[in-house]
Design a protein around this nucleic acid. Structure first.
Length: 485
RNA sequence: GCCCCCAUCGUCUAGCCAGGUUAGGACACCAGCCUUUCAAGCUGGCGACACGGGUUCGAAUCCCGUUGGGGGUACCA
């Protein structure tokens, strides 16, 4: 089905640099990205740093890194909202001159008090019901006296109605609309003025953002009109909830992109998962490449109800990518995790073989790195509880001696040779193959679970296999001796 | 309080706009198959239209209400 929207579009992603990139923000960026890619057009990255106290310049780089990691590149920016405050002030001045805004000499405390009173009486508080705008004479007089003032926007008469891309028609009755501050008494522009100015200035055609902005739309539309700018098309995405059904936050679990990255989630998996949290292609596809998602993306398939973040499904999605992506891709994503466990310069060939063997068994890169460790460690530590069963088999050390010997003699050291050695020895000493297979797995990986043993031995290589097997046999002799004594 | 938004399995969702389906898929869970172990994979199972009124031959689908959830209500963004 063809979308009703036509490109090219101009979208934007405006994070505030007050913290790491949140997955909710990331999802908003993803839908903007998908919209831009599917319809053609461009995306602007704008850093919303109007709130100087809470803004941290460090965060800008961090947010950019997180976006780049996800594979989202803006066509323009990052622009800093604070770079254009002079333009924002000029806009406020213009509105003042045109009578579309007025000087407000009331203090915040005064207004607040009036509000509380009204609330106590069970009434809705409205600035413009309680206070009259000052007359020109009053303005002149108080300005003369050097009184400070804020600039308040005069909300135009009439209901505000608009068509939201994900919610359909939304109406705010005139009676519910109030005048609001656009320039603080310290001369700084408020968020509402700034976004509208910047979006208009940037020629933004589609504003896709979180539902927390839905009730700001009347203010923004009022401003666009007063400024003589074209009103963009809006789309408000439902928020992402945590398992507690409250807005997702770090309190209830990982909530920032970098946390997932550090846990070993692949960017492809997070992008795919987030895209599906509030959108579906309309058929049964779930694991989709960015190209497939771009191709299938339409705003009418955006879901309008809030979704709970499902960590389990993300984990599954990651496992899908872990086993499905090209090995080279996995290897390069795994590198930092190998670094962490001290395997920064492991032999590339053996590493690739080991990773390929374990990738279908891991949910996270971190976990995968853990599986690789035994391949490159000189000696392994064996857990006595896990080895209990083997410690009780008196014949085992002698059998493993024989196996170690045969492993050393296999030429070439390949799957066939390995299997023949194990099965052959088992037949000779008259035990089932499993009797040798399980302790050998323990010997090589210090774990009772893992890939098919023959493959494990092959990937481990002759030298390391013989070494681990020898060490393990010695361990068995030592422990069973001490247990008996 | 007031305003706006939302409501299908435990979770993500398809189906709704253009009423008629055994209400479909995925995650999770359970069972079986496969198997040298663990995963993966395959097969099957469990499991939902929030409630109440309408409209209609017929309602998950359309309308109204209730309940529940979310967001907003700033000289925060």
């Amino acid at each position: 089905m063809a979308t009703k929207l036509t490109g090219p579009v101009r979208v934007r992603f405006p994070p505030s640099p007050t913290g790491a990139l949140h997955v909710g923000g990331a999802r908003t960026a993803i839908y903007n990205d998908l919209l831009r890619r599917s319809l053609g057009g461009s995306m602007i990255l704008r850093i919303e740093d109007t709130d100087r106290q809470r803004s941290d310049p460090e965060m800008v780089a961090q947010i950019q890194r997180a976006l780049a990691w996800l594979g989202i590149e803006a066509d323009e920016g990052p622009f800093l909202q604070s770079d254009r405050v002079e333009e924002h002030r000029a806009a406020a001045r213009r509105l003042l001159e045109e009578g579309k805004a007025y000087h407000c000499f009331r203090t915040a405390e005064e207004v607040e008090e009036k509000r509380r009173e009204a609330e106590k009486r069970g009434q809705t508080s409205f600035y413009r019901v309680f206070f009259e705008p000052p007359t020109p004479e009053e303005v002149a007089r108080r300005l003369e006296a050097g009184e400070s003032y804020a600039v308040r926007f005069r909300m135009p008469k009439g209901d505000i109605q608009f068509h939201d891309l994900v919610r359909g028609d939304v109406t705010f009755a005139e009676a519910v609309l109030d005048d609001f501050i656009i320039l603080r008494s310290d001369g700084s522009p408020t968020y509402h003025l700034s976004v509208v100015c910047d979006d208009a200035h940037g020629g933004v055609t589609h504003v896709i953002r979180g539902e927390d902005h839905l009730s700001n739309v009347p203010k923004h539309i009022g401003l666009y009109r007063a400024l003589g700018a074209e009103v963009p098309t809006f789309g408000h995405l439902p928020l992402i909830m945590g398992p507690d059904r409250k807005r997702l936050s770090k309190r209830t679990g990982a909530a920032s992109v970098e946390e997932f990255r550090d846990q070993g989630i692949l960017p492809q998996a997070l992008y795919n998962f987030l895209a599906l949290l509030g959108w579906s292609p309309g058929d049964d596809r779930e694991v989709m490449s960015r190209e497939e998602m771009t191709e299938a993306f339409t705003v009418e398939r955006l879901v309008s109800s809030a979704a709970i973040f499902d960590y389990d499904k993300l984990r599954w999605m990651n496992a899908q990518y872990l086993s499905g992506e090209p090995l080279e891709e996995i290897l390069s994503r795994l590198a930092p995790f190998l670094d962490e466990v001290g395997l920064a310069d492991a032999d590339a060939e053996r590493l690739a073989a080991a990773v390929d063997l374990h990738r279908t068994r891991a949910y996270y890169l971190q976990e995968l790195a853990g599986y690789i460790v035994p391949y490159f460690r000189e000696r392994l530590d064996y857990d006595e509880d896990l080895c209990r069963k083997f410690l009780g088999q008196a014949d085992l050390p002698a059998q493993l001696d024989l196996l170690t010997e045969r492993f050393g003699a296999i030429e070439p050291f390949d799957l066939d040779g390995i299997e023949t050695a194990i099965r052959g020895l088992a037949a000779e000493v008259e035990v089932k193959a499993g009797v040798l297979i399980h302790p050998t797995r323990m010997a090589l990986s210090a774990s009772k679970a893992g890939p098919s043993l023959f493959h494990l031995v092959e990937a481990m290589g002759q030298e390391a296999s013989v070494r681990h097997l020898g060490n393990f046999t010695a361990y068995l002799r030592e422990r069973s001796g001490s247990v008996e004594a």
